[in-house]
């Protein structure tokens, strides 16, 4: 599903050159639930942004569902992002002046789908997260947990193969956090790959596999940094 090899990301200003990722290699296969942990500034978010095609990599190789993303233009990257990836953010990032229906509709609008097809997907996604009865409510009328569930509905409405979640429970209390995690686990159980960036060890413990990033270098906590896994399974090296 996700194949990264020797990924590097360098931010350059006139004065400073910052290496956010250094030769990071990672494979995530179909059906996996991976937690990415690490201290602040370690490169977790950069990794997520590159994985989500929100940033371009400086060096290395990245294949997303068999597509080499290095030479794609903006339109092709946007299309791929729309088709393959669902994003869940820590602060939900719902659009405040759109109701729930229209918020979930946003990614679908950038596909050539019929109105009926979009409606079906939106209602299905909101049903899936238990908010089908509140389609015409606005985000400000919902609790944090409900807002995150809407964000999940928005992420899954397009049927992505990969869910990328950046601290999805960071702004939630423990009860709501558990509910959100349960939802993500259910989605994973139904075949969606989930990659979650988190500080929370409890959340990380619920993942099938943990990847730790420190100073832009990824380490598979189960196997150690130097091990190269065979292609059939997931692997991390740095």
């Amino acid at each position: 599903m996700l194949h990264m090899k020797d990924i590097s990301k360098v931010y350059r200003t006139e004065m400073v050159e910052t290496h956010a990722l250094r030769k990071l290699s990672l494979d995530v296969n179909a059906g996996e639930f991976v937690a990415v942990t690490g201290p602040s500034g370690s490169g977790k978010t950069t990794f997520l942004n590159i994985a989500g095609l929100l940033e371009e990599l400086t060096g290395g190789e990245y294949m997303l569902d068999g597509v080499d993303v290095r030479n794609l233009g903006d339109r092709a990257r946007s299309h791929l992002r729309n088709e393959k990836i669902g994003f869940i953010f820590q602060s939900f990032n719902l659009i405040p002046d759109l109701d729930l229906f229209d918020n979930v509709d946003v990614p679908l609008r950038y596909r050539k789908l019929s109105r009926g097809n979009r409606r079906k997907r939106i209602e299905g996604a909101l049903e899936r997260v238990g908010l089908a009865s509140r389609t015409r409510h606005y985000p400000s009328e919902l609790s944090g947990g409900q807002q995150q569930r809407v964000a999940i509905a928005r992420a899954i409405a397009g049927g992505p193969a990969l869910l990328l979640a950046d601290e999805p429970t960071g702004n939630l209390d423990s009860q709501m956090a558990r509910e959100v995690m349960q939802l993500l686990e259910e989605l994973n159980a139904q075949g969606t790959v989930v990659v979650i960036v988190t500080h929370d060890p409890e959340i990380a413990a619920r993942a099938q596999r943990n990847v730790h990033i420190v100073d832009g270098v990824a380490t598979d906590l189960e196997r150690g940094p130097s091990l190269i896994r065979p292609p059939a399974t997931s692997a991390v090296s740095a």
Binding site: G52, L54, D74, R75, S78, H79, R81, N82, E83, F87, N93, I95, V106, P107, Y110, R111, R154, G158
Partner: peptide, 8 residues
Amino acid sequence: VRRALGAS
């Protein structure tokens, strides 16, 4: 957000 959700 729109860019992340697929807007070019």
